[in-house]
């Protein structure tokens, strides 16, 4: 039984693009902001077209810790439009748990039933024997590998485990070694590390790019993005 999911990240909703010059009679900043919001429905359409029931957003869904009410509510409403598709929102560095505490409270309290805040590291069973292990960002720059604890989680035989984290894989060889599917602590299991900013790997470990560039010169140059 195949399990299909959509992995996206860094929507940076509400970003103002103040660094992009705009002529007095122009509207590029508004167009970019609107494109960010519109990415929600585009991602939902991808999920719908491919019959994926789960969308994993690996951090920085919001650009700041204090997005305006309209940015938050309009985003949650857009995600709620298709109740069959579940959105899982992980705190990133921009919308980290400490700075954005009210934001995550709002999402937990007010979001439609199919939109879920991953505000702590508790495992979530997405489907029978398919577990999601979120690694939420607690502080803007904690300086430590939030995925480090994943390997200490006892394996459940026959279970499929998905680690969800925000940020680049800075040490790929180590990551590959650490997440080898024959890893002794997890016989028969696989951990997928979904991270931004690295190459797609067709190995047993999936390092997936799913980021939207915010400035030219970022590691995501060339990516088509909102």
């Amino acid at each position: 039984m195949a399990f299909r999911l959509i992995h996206a990240s860094d929507l940076h909703l509400g970003r103002r693009f103040a660094n992009i010059p705009q002529p007095p009679d122009g509207n590029i900043r508004g167009r970019l902001m609107e494109a960010r919001h519109a990415s929600i429905s585009r991602i939902a359409k991808v999920a719908h077209d491919r019959n994926a029931k789960h969308i994993l957003l690996a951090g920085d869904t919001f650009d700041t810790a204090t997005p305006s009410d309209s940015v938050v509510r309009q985003a949650l409403t857009a995600m709620g439009e298709n109740a069959d598709i579940h959105w899982w929102l992980l705190p990133g560095n921009h919308d980290n748990l400490k700075d954005a505490e009210p934001l995550w409270e709002t999402i937990t309290r007010d979001a439609p039933a199919n939109v879920h805040a991953l505000a702590d590291a508790s495992a979530v069973e997405l489907a029978p024997k398919i577990f999601l292990f979120p690694c939420p960002v607690a502080f803007r720059s904690s300086g430590r590998d939030l995925t480090a604890n994943l390997m200490d989680i006892p394996a459940t035989k026959g279970a499929l485990r998905i680690g969800l984290a925000h940020g680049g894989v800075v040490d790929l060889p180590t990551a590959v070694l650490t997440f080898r599917p024959t890893e002794t602590v997890a016989p028969g299991s696989i951990i997928l590390r979904l991270a931004t900013g690295t190459d797609v790997s067709k190995s047993a470990i999936a390092h997936i790019i799913a980021a939207a560039p915010n400035r030219i010169g970022s590691s995501m140059d060339g990516a088509v993005s909102a």
Binding site: R4, A8, A35, R42, A159, I162, I190, L192, A206, V224
Partner: peptide, 25 residues
């Protein structure tokens, strides 16, 4: 991404969802 089951390599398909192209040349 499609996961066939424990131990099986995942199948990854990249899907463009963006509206703007950012280029550094």
């Amino acid at each position: 991404m499609t996961l066939e089951g424990p131990g099986a390599p995942p199948t990854v398909e990249e899907v463009e969802t963006g509206a703007f192209l950012w280029i550094n040349t």
